[in-house]
Structure formats: C-alpha cells, structure tokens
Design a protein around this nucleic acid. Structure first.
Lengths: 123, 123, 123, 123
DNA sequence: GTGGTCTAGACCACG
DNA sequence: GTGGTCTAGACCACG
C-alpha cells in the first residue's frame, strides 16, 4: 500500500501525509470519500494509531481532509492542495540552490527533471 | 560572512558545510588555503565551537578538506566535491518526486530552474 | 426544520436540545403540546433515534418537557426554562472571560451584543 | 501558577493555551522571552510533557509563539494574537445566540459584560 | 466502531 | 538540557 521508510529522516507521519496526498492526486482517494480509519490504517501499516492521527491532523490543518469525530475522516478534494504545492516548490528551490552552490550544472538538473516527469511531453 | 539561519530545519553544522562548499566553488576558498580555526569561526559566527568542529569533521569525511592536527584545516579543491554533488542531486530528486506527487506541473519546475540559474545561458 | 450542523463541536443531541428550547421560546411548541415521536423526529432529521432519545431525556432532566411513557412527550412551558437560562449565562461568562484574556475590548463585545439582539430595543 | 481544571470539558492543552495567551496579554510573558521548557512546565503542573508540547504546537500554529528546537520556545508578541481574538469573538457570538434562544434578556447580558470588564471605564 | 485526550516512558538529534 | 518522534495502552464521548 503506502511506502514508508522507518529509517528516513522524514518522520513517519510526514511520509504518510505525502502518500495520502499522492493518492488524492492520483484519484485513488476521491473527493468526499472516507479515508481508512485511524485504527485500521495503523494496523495495516504496523504503526501506532497516534502516528496516523498526527498525519490526519496535519492534513486537516492544511485543509486537505476533514474530520467528523464519530463518522470518520474524509477527503476535501484536489483543489485544496495549494498549501502542499507551495511547500513542494519551496523544497525544490532550496534543493536547487544547494545544488548550484555545490557545483551541480543546470544541464544535469534539467536531465533529472525530464527523468522524473518521464519525458511524457514528447510522447 | 556565512548565511546561517537558526530557524531553519537544517542543523547549523549542515548549513556551515554548505556555506564552505559554496565558498570553495566560488573560489573564495582556494585549493590548499587554510580555513579559519574552529575557535575563530565559532566566535565570529556566534555559535558553539562543537558545531564548527562537527562541520569540519564532516567535510573531512567527505574528502573536501584535510587536517594537519597542529597547523590547521585546509581546502582540498573543487575536484573533491563529487560527494556533495551526489547528495545535492539526490535531494533534488526527492524534492521533485514529492512535488510531482503533490500536483506540481513540470513547466512550473522548469521555470524555477531557470530562475535559479538566472538564465545565464542566454548571456 | 431544525438547524443541525454535523461539523459542529457541539454534539447533535445538544444542538437538538437547543433547537427545541428555541421553538418553545418562539411559541412554536406551545405548553402541553406534544413533541414529535423519537422515531419520527430521527427519521425526519436523518439522525440516529438514540440521539433524539438522549436529547429528550436531557430536556426531561432539565424539567423542560415531560413524558407519558405511552402517549408521548410534552412541553412543560417557558416558565420551566430557568436551567437553560443558567447554562446559557454561564457559557456567556466563560466566553467573555476568555475573550477578555485574549485581548478583546469591551466596546467590541457591546457591539456584538447589539448586533445579535438587533437593536430591537430601539424599534 | 496556571489554573487548570482536569474536570473541565476543555482539554488541558486548550486551557494551557488560554493561560499562556492571558500571560502574554498581561505582559508577564514578554515578546521574545523564553517560555518555560516543555519538561519544566509539565513537571510544575503535574501533567505529561506531551500535553504541554501539544499546547505549544497549537500556539505555534496560531503564530503566537515560535520554537527553536534546541534553544527553547519563545513569545512572538501580542500583535500576533488576532487568531485568538477571532476565536474568542466567535465563541461569544455562539454563546450569545444560544442565550437569546433560551430566553435570556439583553439587559442581563449587558450586566454580565459590565461585571467582567469591572466597570473600569467609569473609574 | 469512530476519533480525541492523556499518560508513561523510550530514544534521538542538536549543540 | 532542549524539543521531536514514536510506542503501548488506557479511558472517554458520540451515536
């Protein structure tokens, strides 16, 4: 299901957030559909319910999902992902500045970009 | 001198490493020239000497500088920055994948790349 | 009919109680008139019968309505609303103290009071 | 020190937030001054460090304080309390509407307001 | 069964 | 010593 790396410097709850956002973007989690319950997801991933809860809380604070205390947790929809877009582009900027400063060439970076977006614009 | 941001999620020693690498790339720190002493740099930047020491140790482990225990710390030269290049491109890849997953478009990213390399290829 | 907000921090049964009290105050539910049955009201509002039942039980405990177990639930009359008045003024006090502590000015509060009572004293 | 009521419907971390905001408003906690450490405050209040941490996290999300992971937690200043003002006035509005609906008179409310702001404007 | 709160306690990075 | 992460586990309200 989700790809979690316990050894990562990213905490588990952050990885979980990113995975959920990815699923929303892919349309696997649709608008207003219910996410797995805190307990169910924790059990499936073999992690503590509190960790799942923290990820859900963060996503709620970022306006991506909403919680009905007794009914469950629901997707708000892709139009609410602007905060995540902002964070993501900020991270790109930081990574690129660091790369430039350590001598990475622009052509190298363009190649990486093409690699990740899989040159689909040429298909 | 160096730009350190205590509010950053990056620890200070990492920021210090990046700054030193930047200076080497810019030619401000030349090959075989001596870096400031741990104590002097710590004092100048108003940070803990242990932090400077850790940055120097890391740079030595990454083969960027070398130490003569009594005489001081010296620059190896730009040709030794491959480890840093590798780390930097890895960080770019992670940032780009996250961005793609949260719905950022390729054109946006290309724009950011151009921005940071300041379109110098057209000069 | 009643305004229920499932997203509210107030549980539904509490909202239901408040709505019924409002109707009694407005004269829509008259003294000794019969309230809708638990099942009918639950059905109409699309909520769990247990929730309606709980609201009725609470209102009975607060002496606002009375039950003839077979015949139904009846309104006691506006003179029995003192408990609700007490709760309401207590909530005002708490809200006002919190507001004062977080720096809200008295004039702001007076304005809010006028707004809600719609300056009807000038009509 | 702080007034905490474990029996309150307000969770402890919320009460803690309100108390801290009160102290900032009173000038007891000055701008840029350091708040008690998570552990120290937890110990003093006889509560779990996680609970203190949650209150601090919430206040940080509301832009009232800021955290330097290793150095401590600091006050941002009274000018950042607008979120709290908004929440407080929203709570007043809700409480007043409920009161009006349960038959409380405007004059009663004005009296309560005067009581809490202690008629200081007439001194 | 759902999420929310809270505790006790471990381990970690940073400086 | 500072905050951050995570676990295990208890108890609660709601419906």
């Amino acid at each position: 299901m989700f790809s979690l790396d316990v050894k990562s410097k990213d905490p588990i709850y952050t990885q979980l957030e990113k995975n959920i956002v990815r699923y929303i973007n892919l349309g696997i989690y649709e608008k207003n559909s219910m996410l797995p319950s805190v307990r169910a997801l924790a059990c499936e991933l073999g992690i503590n319910p509190n960790t799942v809860s923290k990820a859900y809380k963060n996503l709620e604070a970022k306006n991506v999902i909403y919680t009905f205390s007794v009914k469950g947790v629901f997707v708000k929809g892709t139009e609410s992902l602007t905060t995540f877009n902002k964070i993501a582009t900020d991270e790109i900027k930081t990574a690129l500045r660091d790369a430039k400063n350590s001598g990475v060439e622009k052509t190298e970076v363009i190649e990486i970009v093409n690699e990740i977006w899989e040159r689909k614009e040429n298909d």
